[in-house]
Structures are given as C-alpha cells and as structure tokens.
Design a protein around this nucleic acid. Structure first.
Lengths: 224, 224
DNA sequence: GCAAAAGTGTTCGGCGTACACCCATGC
DNA sequence: GCATGGGTGTACGCCGAACACTTTTGC
C-alpha cells in the first residue's frame, strides 16, 4: 500500500525513477576587488551557446564530493581548498522534464593559483557577479543561493583562506571581504575583529610595496 | 578529453552512472520535554530488522520536495509544516557499493497533530534522541547533521511554530526550546527574547490549568 | 492561607560600530 | 619634506546572561 522503502538501494518499484545525477560547482574568486564566478560556455545542446555553472555526471565509483573536486580541478587546476555542499535541486532543467537531480557545491579559489582550462569548446571564464550573462537552465537561482551562503559563511568561519595566497596583507584580506559582502568596511574594526577570531595570525614578515610604510603579512592559522 | 557536460541531462557517457535517488526525512518532535525522532523498523533486506529514517525512492514526475512531503504525510498524516532540505549523502550505504544518493530533509511536527501510521510491517515510532537503537546504513550521521541544523535554525527563525499547536503557553514554548538545545533556559530572558523577535504574539486568552494563576496563550505571528 | 505555577526588572560584561590621527617609507 | 598607504584607541549602544520576588488562582 505504501511505497515505504527507507532508502533501500536494492528495492525497485515500477513507479520509481532513476534520474540522472549531476554535480554542479559554483566556483567563486575575488579579482580586482570584484566577486566573480566561473562559468562555462556550452558547446552542445541543450542550451547550446549559453553560459552555465560547471558540472557533470558522476563517474562510476565516485562519491559526490570526489565528483565535485574533480570538476573543480578540471576547470581551475586547483585542489585542496574550500569546497562545501550547497543544495540539491530537483528541477534545474524543467524543460527536459526528466527530473534530473543536481547536487550543487560551492568552492572558493585563490586567483593567483587558479589556471583556467584553455579549451575553445566549453570554455571557462570568470564573470563578475553583477554582470552575469544569460544563464542556462536555472543557474541564476543556484548562484543566488551560493552567494547568500558565502556571505554567511564568511561571518563565522575562516573560509576566506581559500581565496588568498598563504600570506597576505590586512588590506588584501579586507578587500576580499568587501567584495563579498558588497560594502566597505572600517579598517580598524575589521582588523580587530579578524584578529579576535583567531583565524589569522601575524607573521614576522613585512612587504614593502611602494613609497609608503611596508605592510605586515598575515597567514591563516587553521590547522597550521 | 574532459567529461564536461555542465549538467546536460541528455548527455550520457559510458562511465556515467544513474544511481538510485532516495529522499530521507528526519522528522523531529518534542514529547514530554524530550526531543524525539521518527524511525521505522525495516521489514525486508537490506538491514532487515534494524531501525532507519523514513525514506524512499522518488516517484515519476515528483520533485524532491514533493517526495519529502509525501513521506512525511505517509508516516505522520500531517502536511504544511516546517520541512527543509538538509544535505545530500552519496554514500549512505557503503556496503551496497552502488552509490545510491540520499537527499535528506528535516521536518518538525506537533505531536498533538501527528498520527503515526499503524502498520505492523515498517512500523514507525518516536525515539528519544538520547536512546537511539542501532540504525541501518549511516543514519546516525544524518540525524547528527539534522540535530545540529535544528539547533541553529531555532536561534534565528520561527521554525518552532511547527512543533506546537496554534496557541500555547510560554512555558510550553520554553520546554520545546529546552528539549532541543538540551539545557535549561532562564524564564525571564526567554520570554523577553522571544517576544522581541516578533515571532510570537500574545492572544487575549488565558488557560486555567490547576490551582495556580492561569497562563496567557500565545500564537506564532508569521504570515498570520 | 498555602501550594503551585505565572509573571515581571535591573545590572553587568562583551561586542559591534562609529570615528581621526600618527607612522614608516620612497622619491 | 611630502605623498602614500599602514597602523592604532576610545566612546557608545545593544544584546545576551545572571539573578529573586510578587501575583493569581484552586483547594
């Protein structure tokens, strides 16, 4: 009577579907004080010619997280950074009607370490969040969710470690925060707050960078 | 060379898998001051005889959220309450090795409205979180994630509306909060804080309930 | 009048926010 | 010596936490 199966993988009922499962990775970076997201120009139907969030099907034997890591590495060449599951969408491509399921993730990458894949087909590029092109499927929704989550993560985690080189100045860190929250922050309060969290620590080094006082370099303290 | 597909539902590669997709619903309630979760005793392999979180495969044409609502209604008879996506697990049943994907949700139900399905097979029951039986698959992990999320949701949303009747006393509300966070709260601070959020509002009614001063009834104010 | 739960105010410390000037360097 | 960005301290308002007594009712 009921279709109770309690996630028994082996049970199969006539009405059950086996939808395609894809992972999508919303990859953020901050370049020139602007928050950007990596998009890929689709070179085949559906949505040929439109830009979309990088993603693809799971490979055999791969976990969801491994698939997300693989996608991230394929597009940016980087590994071992902030990557977190975001949300699972059951209706990203309503047009297809096949009920594909998209498990979305979001990642933060340091632009100085990322090397975008240089293909001509499925070409990846960084897009400023305030000037997104028309996106395939329902990818705008995914990016909105990711941005909201990024802002809130920034408040109580050291997620930003993944957006910066190992050492950086307070100003560089502050610019990253400002780009993400979308508003200027007070220099003194920012410094005090970030040091108080314990996420970052001063190094012994300074960086001279023009005709003014050199800036102290900091590093993230997490699992040092 | 790359397997880029950007979640194109139509593309199919030889290595791509079509794993089973199930939804799981962690259903919480508070009874007698204790946080409880609904579990179902499995009556068929795999994990025959063990207890598990209610769940099952998607039906054709159903969205993920509809499947979660359906599961919730099947087990408790209630609809239209707090239900939110939690996390998607790619390896809930590592033993099977088929890589099934479980999209977990969590729900909050008012015990006075819930009527558990009274079957003998796949029998549902409320379990105190501090005395869980051995669970099938990796369901303990799912419950841990759900509980953590519930605690944090309670701090900044009116999610508790879904755990109580339409009107309730301050004490009842406080007992629900205490059961969830797992520690006693100060009566005065609790009242002040909850009223300050605007989530709840006083009604004109009182409830006399023994040989002591009657308690004022409150209701949730959300989308009233 | 007494037992039982309902209801109520104040103090304190910490934290986020606003705000302006001196410091070190390169040229 | 001056232009440029680096670096610092204080005052205030809000909020969460701690804490004890009076009020209303039923019996």
């Amino acid at each position: 009577m009921t279709t109770e199966t309690t996630q028994a993988p082996a049970m199969e009922s006539p009405e059950a579907r086996r939808p395609a499962v894809a992972v999508l990775v919303v990859i953020f970076t901050v370049i020139d004080g602007a928050l950007r997201v990596l998009l890929i120009e689709r070179s085949a139907p559906p949505a040929d010619g439109q830009w979309a969030i990088p993603g693809g099907a799971l490979l055999h034997g791969e976990t969801l997280e491994q698939a997300a890591e693989r996608k991230l590495a394929e597009e940016t060449g980087v590994t071992d950074l902030f990557l977190e599951q975001l949300y699972t969408f059951g209706d990203l491509d309503p047009a297809s009607g096949d009920g594909s399921v998209g498990v979305s993730w979001f990642a933060l990458v340091d632009p100085s370490r990322a090397r975008l894949a240089r293909r001509t087909a499925w070409r990846p590029a960084w897009w400023d969040l305030s000037e997104l092109p028309p996106l395939a499927f329902d990818n705008n929704r995914v990016i909105d969710v990711a941005r909201a989550r990024l802002i809130s993560k920034l408040q109580y985690t050291d997620a930003a470690y993944s957006l910066l080189p190992t050492t950086f100045t307070m100003r560089e860190l502050q610019e990253v925060y400002e780009a993400i929250v979308g508003q200027p922050l007070d220099k003194r309060n920012f410094r005090r707050r970030l040091l108080a969290t314990g996420f970052i620590a001063a190094t012994a080094e300074l960086r001279a960078d023009g005709r003014h006082r050199p800036a102290r370099l900091y590093r993230f303290a997490h699992r040092s």
